[in-house]
C-alpha cells in the first residue's frame, strides 16, 4: 500500500519537474522525491527489517533530502538564477512528453520478465519512467542546474529499480552508487559556480574597456 503511495508521489514529482520553470521549487521537489524513495528499502522488503535496509534508508534520506538540496540551493543563490529560461522543449510539451514516456514505460514493462517477489507491479514502470524523465530533462533544459536535477532523477530511477526489483542488492554496491552521485553533485555544484564566475568576468570586461 505505502509502496504504491510512494511510487505515485514519484510519478507526480516527475510530472511537476517537467512542468515547472522555477529552479528552487524543482530542487525541493527532487529532495522530496529523494526522501520518499529513501523509505522504499524499508517498505519494499517483505522480510523483517534488516540493518542493511535501515542503513541504506538513512544514507539516502540524508544525502538526497538534506545534502543535495543544500548544495544546489547554495549554487543557485551564488549564481543568481531563479528560473529556467526558454528551454528547448516548452513546459506543456514536456508534460505531454512525460505522459507519453509514462505510457511507454508501462508498455515496456509488460514485455519484461519480472521476478515474482516484486513489491508492487508499478515499481519497474515507475523506475523506467524516472530514468527516461531524467534523460529528457538533461536533453531538454538549458540551465546547468536543471540538468543536474535531471541526472538526480535518472539516478533515482536506477535506485528505485535496484531497491525494488532485485531482492538483495549488496549493501556495498548501493553505498558505492550513493557515494558516486554525491561526488558528482558536489563537483557539478562547484563547476556551475565557476562557470558563472568566469562568465561574469568575461562579460564585464568589454563594458569596462568601453568606459576608459
Amino acid at each position: 500500500m505505502l509502496t504504491n503511495l510512494i511510487l505515485i508521489l514519484v510519478v507526480l514529482s516527475n510530472l511537476k519537474l517537467l512542468a515547472s520553470s522555477r529552479l528552487g521549487a524543482a530542487i525541493r521537489v527532487v529532495a522530496a522525491q529523494g526522501v520518499a524513495l529513501g523509505l522504499l528499502p524499508i517498505l519494499a522488503h517483505r522480510e523483517p527489517l534488516a540493518a542493511h535496509a535501515l542503513l541504506l534508508a538513512a544514507g539516502t534520506i540524508t544525502l538526497k533530502g538534506v545534502v543535495f538540496p543544500w548544495l544546489l540551493l547554495r549554487a543557485i543563490r551564488e549564481v543568481h538564477v531563479a528560473r529556467e529560461v526558454e528551454p528547448f522543449v516548452g513546459y506543456s510539451a514536456s508534460l505531454g512528453a512525460g505522459v507519453l514516456i509514462l505510457g511507454i514505460s508501462f508498455w515496456m514493462c509488460t514485455r519484461l520478465p519480472m521476478p515474482a517477489s516484486i513489491a508492487s507491479s508499478w515499481l519497474a514502470p515507475v523506475a523506467l519512467f524516472s530514468i527516461f524523465v531524467g534523460l529528457f530533462l538533461i536533453a531538454a533544459r538549458k540551465r546547468a542546474i536543471s540538468q543536474v536535477l535531471g541526472f538526480l532523477v535518472l539516478e533515482n530511477g536506477v535506485y528505485t529499480f535496484g531497491v525494488g526489483v532485485t531482492s538483495r542488492t549488496p549493501l556495498i554496491v548501493e553505498i558505492g552508487v550513493l557515494l558516486d552521485v554525491f561526488v558528482a553533485v558536489f563537483i557539478m555544484g562547484i563547476t556551475i559556480f565557476h562557470i558563472q564566475r568566469e562568465f561574469d568576468h568575461t562579460a564585464a570586461a568589454p563594458a569596462g574597456e568601453g568606459k576608459d
Binding site: V11, A19, S92, G96, G103, F106
Partner: peptide
C-alpha cells in the same frame, strides 16, 4: 489544463498496470 490531463492520464495508466 494540460497538467490536469497529465494527472488523469497517469491515473489511467496506473489503473491499467
Amino acid at each position: 489544463l494540460v497538467g490536469a490531463g497529465a494527472l488523469a492520464a497517469a491515473a489511467f495508466l496506473l489503473g491499467l498496470a
